[in-house]
Amino acid sequence: MVKPVDHLKAGKVAQFEALALPHFKSAYNLARWLTRNREDAEDVAQDALVRAFAAFDTFRGGDIKPWLLTIVRNTCMTWLKRNRTESLPIDDQIPPVDPAQGPEERLLASASRDQVRRALEQLPPEFREAIVLREMEELSYKEIAEVAGVPIGTVMSRLARGRDAMRRILLREEPA
């Protein structure tokens, strides 16, 4: 009487893990950059993954990664609303690139992880998520649009502006 349902439940965990486990690192990485905090990211990622498991019945097949990251993203956004941190509009806080400055690609190539981290963390969350999903998670525009719940045109615009802002921040941070 108990066994069959127990078996089904165990089967659901195994099925979920088979598909989702390879993307746990993506879930954490996205949470880490959206919360900007490792401890919170662990909590939020765990929360999101447990939620994903609970909602696993609604997964309609295909690539699980965008589906999973949508849940992570939404969990993060809820967390951000609850733990609201000041974030300036992207164009107000970052000075424009000085075209007279040295070879930027060399600078970018030599930028320390710490510099990149600080630059990324300065972006408003919607730009940060577009950059992380594209550059780190290598999602397509269509998938990013799905995860962020915005049109593809918005994704393209956020990516271009986000990249531009990051470059400006990194250039500004370069010791003169």
């Binding site: 893990e17 746990f24 690192k25 954490y28 880490r32 765990q46 970018l108 930028a111 990324l120």
Partner: peptide, 28 residues
């Protein structure tokens, strides 16, 4: 420059903290 930025970002990928996977699986 765009590719250099990408490369720098990919270097900043945060690894899964030790134990998180175990904790999540235990939670499941």
């Amino acid at each position: 420059r765009l590719l250099a930025l990408r490369s720098a970002l990919q270097d900043s990928y945060e690894d899964l903290p030790l134990g998180l996977e175990t904790r999540v699986r235990a939670a499941l």
